[in-house]
Simulated scan of single mutants.
Amino acid sequence: MANYSIKDLEHLSGIKAHTLRIWEQRYGLINPKRTDTNIRFYDQDDLKLILNVSLLKDNGFKISKIAQMSKEEMHETVLEIADKATSFADQIYGLTLAMIDLDEQRFEKIISSNTLKIGFERTMLNIIYPFLTKIGIMWITDSINPAQEHFISNLIRQKVIVAIDGQYETYDEEAKKYMLFLPEGELHELSLLFANYLIRARGNRVVYLGQNMPFQDLQVAFNAYKPDYLLTIMTTKDRNISTEEYLANLADNFSDTPILVAGSQVIGQDLELKENIVQIANPNHLLEFIEEQQGHSVSR
Rank of each mutant, 00 (worst) to 15 (best):
I233L: 14
T257P: 08
G28Y: 00
L180Q: 04
E272A: 13
D103K: 12
L116V: 10
A2Q: 15
T257S: 04
Y168R: 04
P130E: 13
A281K: 15
P258F: 00
M69R: 01
E186P: 08
K176L: 15
R26T: 08
F61A: 12
D172R: 12
M213S: 04
P32I: 05
F222K: 08
Y27V: 07
N223R: 11
D45G: 03
L273N: 07
S113W: 06
G185V: 10
D238K: 14
N282F: 09
F131G: 00
N154E: 11
E76L: 13
R26F: 09
K84S: 13
W139K: 09
R205M: 14
L180E: 03
Y42T: 01
A224Y: 13
W23G: 02
L190G: 01
V266P: 04
D217P: 05
Q265W: 00
K226A: 14
V278H: 14
Q293N: 13
R239P: 05
S64R: 01
I111T: 09
I280F: 14
A248L: 12
I30G: 00
K177N: 10
F254I: 07
I135R: 01
E292C: 05
E104F: 07
M138W: 14
Q158S: 14
Q105P: 00
S70W: 05
K176M: 10
N212V: 02
P32K: 03
A281L: 05
E104M: 11
D101C: 08
L287Q: 04
